[in-house]
Design a protein around this nucleic acid. Sequence first.
DNA 1: AACCGGATTGAACATACGTGCAAGGAGCCG
DNA 2: CGGCTCCTTGCACGTATGTTCAATCCGGTT
Lengths: 324, 324
Amino acid sequence: MTLDIDPVQSDRSRDALTAAHLYYLQDLTMDAIARELHTSRSSVSRLLSHARETGLVDIQIKSPLDAPSHLEQQLEARFRIEAHVVPVPDSASDVDRLERVALSVARILGQYFDSNMTMGIAWGSTMNAISRHVTPKQTHNSQIVQLNGAGNMRTTGLGYASEILGRFGTAFGAHIQQFPVPAFFDDPATKKALWRERSISRLIDMQATMDIALFGLGSPFSGVISRVYAGGYLEKAEFDALSAAQVVGDVATVFYRADGSTDGIALNERSTGPEFTVLRRTPRRICVVAGRSKLASLRGALAARLITDLFVDESTARALVEAS
Amino acid sequence: MTLDIDPVQSDRSRDALTAAHLYYLQDLTMDAIARELHTSRSSVSRLLSHARETGLVDIQIKSPLDAPSHLEQQLEARFRIEAHVVPVPDSASDVDRLERVALSVARILGQYFDSNMTMGIAWGSTMNAISRHVTPKQTHNSQIVQLNGAGNMRTTGLGYASEILGRFGTAFGAHIQQFPVPAFFDDPATKKALWRERSISRLIDMQATMDIALFGLGSPFSGVISRVYAGGYLEKAEFDALSAAQVVGDVATVFYRADGSTDGIALNERSTGPEFTVLRRTPRRICVVAGRSKLASLRGALAARLITDLFVDESTARALVEAS
DNA sequence: AACCGGATTGAACATACGTGCAAGGAGCCG
DNA sequence: CGGCTCCTTGCACGTATGTTCAATCCGGTT
């Protein structure tokens, strides 16, 4: 057994690297590059795609700091967060919105995550969308930790959640830490007991000391039903209880009201997501929101001070600013 | 008088920014972007060019660290420098070589230079070529300092050198410090006297404390005549003296031999470039070389330990490694 | 108000680029 | 040694992008 890299792979990458050099740093046409590399133009096109996909080429966009859009400035001033407004035409559907915001986030994420870091991630449609596009970036000694369990009455949830987790993991070359518990326990006592198990508490500790948290928002009572409510995670009675408690949203299956409060929301006792008091210790907490249906939920999360960095589509951002 | 930015400029930049967002982060086609921005596709193409040219979009290429080319590794091991080999086909002319290496350097330079830094730059065909392509990057409180005088019998040299200097200055938003003296004094005493003038000594001090030096190499006795020898800077007699002293090259009009030594080279007493003992204190000293005609000169500069970072075209790099 | 550069715009054209496809390997059984 | 699959390659085609040019707009001047 040897440590050599697959020579074919390495050949390919070496070529991709020179191709990228010639294309992006020397402005040669793919045709010219093809001649220098003794191959066809189409292969060069493919090499360059490969270079971009694998993060060999890194394209960043830098706001000249003096020109964050008016919207971003307002959000930053009003909520004390770093805001990133993703331009999406007002006519776009909510699906488009999510897809486009997710794509933007996926491309930028590498600027936040680095070697020796631990990032906690939730799961759900937002995280799923992001995971499908993350641009790879090689890191060392870094960890991706699942924030909340994903099991329900029908499945252990390991498939869906770990797919998401896995995509982040391979993109960053990070170890992944799954959280093999249901989204909600039936009995709070089970949770307490499990939390004392070393295998689980190790994970809880990692969550408590992570450098970055990345999450979307659940919004139980708005048009688009978040995955948590659709997938058999909650019974009708539980759902009604949330409604009665005036819940407006959740982060990693921990629920909150419009004012950001969580006290007396019974379901949280059985939820596996990190308590907000813990979450708030994470230095960078990136929230991704797309679509106006999540507006109430977003207001609540802001009130709960769960967010340090917000990625949001333009029209939702506008709505957020206007109503305040 | 107001501090507002030209609203037209700012409009343009804002659009360029969103266009860049949509194009590079969301993979929209220019056509789609045109519709969102209510303009024509060609305008979007222009906006994107603008965004790239002004450094709004920053494209980096990251060697996965495990894959610096064989050549780069050898150079780094042998000379204790950071090497960047620029791929250029062996068939390319020396002019092409220079142009392509310069373009690469111009694109990468922003990764080295930042706010609050001082960079010293020489002048000559290499620096000229680089200056014509530097990708802008906004910095604050940074300085560009001219390393050596550019005047000669016919002109003050302020035009040519300051054009170069100016391009770097505007690209980085840096203050520029010209060096209004000839390349060589006739009398060493004049130099000594001037060096005591506060206006000049201030500049010398800046050179002594700069963070980065950027220079090409002169190679008096090889095919392509460096600007120093062509432009009326040296008399026949001086040229002969250099030859007799076995000089192989110069950095900022300070001459050295193949072994890197400078002792007893009379012309250096009258040269306005920084002494090597001073130059070597600069933490990062970036040398840009293109063309095998500069090989001897490059060997000397390496022997003189003037270089910490080398940018060189592929075939010159190969020649350098092979002959050692 | 009429006039004049100079900059900006969209249409049209000319390139350059991405991708489906069929052909040609390279490895892997049977 | 076929015969199989899976992967890579170059070609051909359609689309996306860069660029020229004439028309238009704008700010300043007479």
